[in-house]
Amino acid sequence: MTVYLTDETYFSLVDAIRALRPDPLTEEVDRDEVVTLLGNVGDLWPVTIKPDAER
């Protein structure tokens, strides 16, 4: 499925992803940070957070 975002949302998402920094101990970006970023900046959410009636 192709999803088209507005240019503003798309480039805000790109900038936010580029700004993520890995944890100094694990050297990995926290998964929850990525999920939150996708939701808050791109309004992209997994279907599992929808109420059962809406799935």
Rank of each mutant, 00 (worst) to 15 (best):
L13P: 05
D52A: 14
E8W: 06
R18K: 15
D52R: 13
N40L: 03
T36Y: 06
M1W: 06
D23A: 01
Y4I: 13
D43R: 11
L20E: 08
T6W: 03
D7N: 13
R21N: 08
V3M: 12
D7K: 14
A16W: 01
D7C: 08
T48Q: 09
D43E: 13
V34M: 04
T36E: 13
W45T: 09
E27A: 08
Y10D: 11
L44G: 01
T26A: 08
A16G: 06
N40C: 00
P51F: 05
V14F: 10
E8K: 15
E54I: 09
E27P: 02
D15Q: 14
P24Y: 08
E33F: 02
R31V: 10
D7T: 12
E28C: 09
L44W: 07
D15R: 12
K50N: 09
L25N: 02
E8F: 03
K50L: 15
L44Y: 02
Y10F: 14
E33W: 04
A53E: 14
Y4K: 13
L5T: 05
M1G: 15
P46C: 04
Y4A: 14
F11N: 13
P46V: 09
D15K: 14
T26S: 15
I17S: 02
V3H: 10
R18E: 12
D30R: 15
M1D: 05
A16H: 00
Y10K: 12
R18N: 14
T2V: 10
T48N: 04
V35F: 11
D52F: 08
A16D: 05
Y10H: 15
V41D: 07
V34H: 07
R31F: 11
K50P: 00
G39C: 06
D32H: 04
L38P: 05
P46M: 02
T6S: 14
D32S: 10
Y10M: 07
D15Y: 08
T48I: 04
D52S: 10
E28A: 04
M1V: 10
T9A: 13
P22Y: 01
T26N: 06
L5P: 03
E8M: 09
V34E: 00
A19D: 15
L38A: 06
L44M: 14
T36P: 03
I49W: 09
V41T: 14
V47G: 03
R55D: 01
T36W: 02
E54S: 06
L25G: 00
A16F: 09
F11H: 15
F11S: 09
A53T: 03
N40M: 07
V41A: 00
K50H: 03
P22R: 01
P24H: 06
P46Y: 08
N40P: 01
Y10L: 14
T26H: 07
R21W: 01
D43H: 13
I49T: 12
P51T: 01
P22M: 03
V41E: 08
L13V: 06
V34S: 07
T2D: 07
V41H: 05
V47L: 12
M1Y: 02
T48F: 03
P51Y: 00
E28H: 07
D7A: 15
L25Y: 05
T9I: 12
R31T: 09
V3C: 05
R21Y: 03
I49V: 13
R31N: 07
L37G: 00
E27L: 10
D7G: 05
P51I: 06
L44R: 00
S12W: 00
